[in-house]
């Protein structure tokens, strides 16, 4: 690069007004063999900055750190099961159970399309199953009420926290 340009850059450098590119230009110039006699006094300084950035071997440090870390490796993010999800599952189970009992009851009374494995039911068994069904229905109604209560609590709780994506 031209001597005059470099001379200006050097002055700019001492004035603290060079940008990174200009500073890079200066370092390159001073690391070359062709430094103007009036500027050779600055050569060691700019060379020093260039030298100082050279990389050293830090592989042993990296290896030591990685080894220590692997021993304390953290498991992948644990899944948080939200209350909403529990409620959904419970409700689904309740519906499923209710439907099963309902269908079971229906199939018994219609008498058609029975699978081979299905037993022929006596009147007593029908009554028993009806009783059981009614009891279950009552129990599920109770659970459903509790879930509703829980839902209210949860909704209260949720409004205080950030939204849980699962409840979309």
């Amino acid at each position: 690069m031209e001597y005059n340009n470099i001379k200006d850059l050097v002055e700019k450098y001492w004035a603290g007004e060079t940008d990174l590119q200009e500073e890079s230009t200066l370092k390159t110039y001073f690391s070359s063999a062709d430094v103007h006699p009036s500027l050779t006094q600055y050569k060691p300084l700019f060379s020093y900055f260039q030298e100082a950035k050279k990389e050293v071997s830090l592989d042993s440090i990296e290896a030591a750190v990685m080894e220590q870390i692997q021993h304390k490796a953290v498991p992948t993010k644990t899944k948080v099961i939200s209350l909403g999800r529990i409620m959904k599952v419970a409700a689904a189970v309740a519906v499923l159970m209710g439907a099963t009992f309902f269908l079971y009851n229906q199939m018994g009374s219609s008498g058609t399309q029975m699978a081979d494995s299905e037993r022929v039911r006596t009147l007593d068994e029908e009554n028993e199953s009806l009783e059981a069904y009614l009891e279950l229905k009552a129990a599920l109604a109770l659970v459903s009420n509790k879930i509703d209560d829980g839902k209210q609590q949860a909704i209260k709780g949720l409004s205080r926290t950030k939204s849980i994506p699962i409840l979309k």
Binding site: K43, P44, L45, S47, Y48, E51, K54
Partner: peptide, 13 residues
Amino acid sequence: ETITQSNDTVRTI
């Protein structure tokens, strides 16, 4: 070996 100046200069800086 890659430093073109003497170690004294480096130490000075």
